[in-house]
Structures are given as structure tokens and as C-alpha cells.
Simulated assay, not measured.
Amino acid sequence: MTAIDGVSYSPAELDRDSTFYVAGHRGLVGSAIWRRLQAGGFTKLIGKTSSELDLKDREGVFAFFRESRPRYVALAAAKVGGILANSMYPVDFLSDNIRIQTNVMDAALEVGVERLLFLGSSCIYPKFAEQPIREDSLLTGHLEPTNDAYAIAKIAGILHVQAVRRQYGLPWISAMPTNLYGPNDNFSPQGSHVLPALIRRYDEAAKEGAATVTNWGTGSPRREFLHSDDMADASLHLLEHYDGPSQVNVGTGSDVTIREIAETIADVVGYSGPTQWDTSKPDGTPQKLLDVSLLADAGWTSRISLQDGLERTVAWYRDNASRLRE
């Protein structure tokens, strides 16, 4: 239990009639959290598109918080992308994300937001961290250079949450999801992560009858994948059941190779041709599997299988392909 200004707080069921702001409510994670909160009976959800509120605009963010005064916040807004985007625009990934999260957390602190969940990424951990990666691996080694700028921004967010806990006693928390996928993901060739990029590539190959598909790297790195609806469920669970300074890993506890996930996606979309691997391109971190013991101790485990999640995501992608960003 923590306290501020004489008011005590502790993890408990959130008030469904209190104002809940979801930052980034149109994105992959934010939209899933929004759906989960709606299903859970929350009646006062607030979301702003980037055109309505630029979270990099500090004065605008503070004005929004002073007007809306949310009791709860899920900070899912971020500039995100895959290896290519992170390699090409490291300044953007560092500067934009630090400004977004700092503005939101500073404004939330000013109006006394009771519970805030900051969402980061498993790329915060060292490139060669012992597998599966425990929360205490943070800051124990060098980062993967292809996304170190983004990782540093997210590490700053974790420390920001910890600082608020120490200085002001508010029970804010951080969650670090593994590789996420699902509805409202970014499927663009330039900005997508590996799984949506593979879905688009194989689906287009299947439709066009392509002779072959070429993927980056060797296909040997191992990755863990979690459906965004599972992430959303874990987010609400942590807000209601966890109060600690450590970031919490959120994942499935199992991984597959990129080659295996490519083969599964090819099967789901109906592509039967060969796959080539461009080994001149980088693989990234060799393995990134999270230790989810702390999450399990808090009472939550994933429910959506990879096969089921992929089938759902491919169906969503095909239903929405015409309107997705390029």
C-alpha cells in the first residue's frame, strides 16, 4: 500500500465509473486495452488521436489532463517500428518516445492520477542477457544496437515510474511485453515488426502466385509472440493486482524461430512456394524469451495460442488491408 497527501492506495478492483485515459488508443496495444476495458464495464474511457492531441506537445498534454482529470492511465502511446525503421531513424525513436512518456507522466502527476501503467518493450534488456530474461537483467549489459535508441527511451520510462513511486508514493507500475501482434498492428513494409511484415509478405505472395518469398537474416533467431488481446487482459490484471517498483515481463514463456513462424504464417495464408533467406541482412538479438515468473506470481498467464492468434490476425488483416497505412 502507498499513500500521498494522506490518501492510501493499494491494488484493488478499479472503479468502472472513474475516468480512464488510454494514451495511444488507436494503436496495437492501446486499442486492445480499450476493447478489454469496454468489455470489463468501464464507462468513462477517454482517447485522443494524434491529430486531436500531439503527446509531444507538452502544453497541450498538460491542458488535456487538467481538463479531463483521469483517475487511471494506460500509457500505450509510442513511436514504434521494426529493425529497418529503428536503424534509419534513431533520433526520432529516442526523442519522440522520451517526450511522449515524459509529458504524459508529468501531467498525470500534476493532477494526481492514482494508477498509471507504463508499457515498454522487451528490447530494454541486454542483447546477450541470460535466457529466459528476468526483470533484474535490466541495465546489466549492452543493448542490441539496431534498436538501442528506442530501448533507452523505454528504460527512461521505467525509471520515471520508479522515481514517482519513491518521491510521491503513487502506485504506478510498468509492464514490458514481448513481441506483440494482433488487430491494428502496423503492416507497412517500412515500419512493421517481424510478424506483421511476414503476414503481409506471405499474403501478397499467395494472392499474386509469387515464385518465392525472401526474408531478412538467417531465420535462426528465436522470438516469443503474444497476442495483443492477451496483453490487454494482463494490463488490467496488473493494475488490479500488482504494486511493485520492478517492471513486469508479459509474455507466454515459450518461443519459436523466425523460420518456424514464417512457415506457420505461410501455411495460414495458403502460400505453398519456397522461402529464401537474405543472410546479408541483420538477424538482431539471437534470442529474446522473457521469464514470466513475476507475472505468474501475480496470478496471470496467457490464454491465446500462437496458431489461434495468427489465424485471427490474418483474418483481421485481410478484412482491413485496403485501409491500412503504407
Rank of each mutant, 00 (worst) to 15 (best):
S18H: 11
F42H: 15
G47L: 05
I265Q: 05
L306Y: 03
G6T: 01
W316R: 11
A206Q: 03
T218E: 10
S188C: 01
Y317V: 01
V248N: 10
K154M: 10
T214I: 12
I100T: 02
V7G: 05
L295C: 07
S10G: 12
T178W: 09
V104T: 03
G273F: 09
F118P: 01
F62K: 13
A262S: 15
A156L: 11
P90W: 08
K281F: 06
I124S: 00
A262D: 04
M176H: 12
N86W: 04
D267W: 13
S220F: 09
Q247F: 07
N184T: 00
V113A: 04
Y271N: 06
M1N: 13
R16W: 05
S272F: 05
D233A: 15
F118R: 06
P245W: 05
P171G: 01
S121G: 04
L290D: 00
A262L: 10
V292G: 05
A129I: 08
S10L: 14
A232F: 01
A153R: 08
P196G: 02
A315F: 02
L45K: 09
R200K: 14
S8A: 14
L37H: 10
G40Y: 05
W172K: 00
P177R: 05
G169N: 02
S8C: 13
T275N: 08
S280Q: 14
P90T: 00
N147V: 06
G191R: 07
V256A: 06
L236S: 01
L159W: 15
A156R: 14
L180H: 02
L290E: 09
F42V: 09
R200V: 00
S137M: 12
H25S: 15
G309E: 11
F20S: 06
T264D: 02
V91P: 03
T49W: 11
T19A: 15
D230E: 08
W277F: 04
L116C: 04
V314L: 00
Y9C: 07
C123E: 12
Q167N: 13
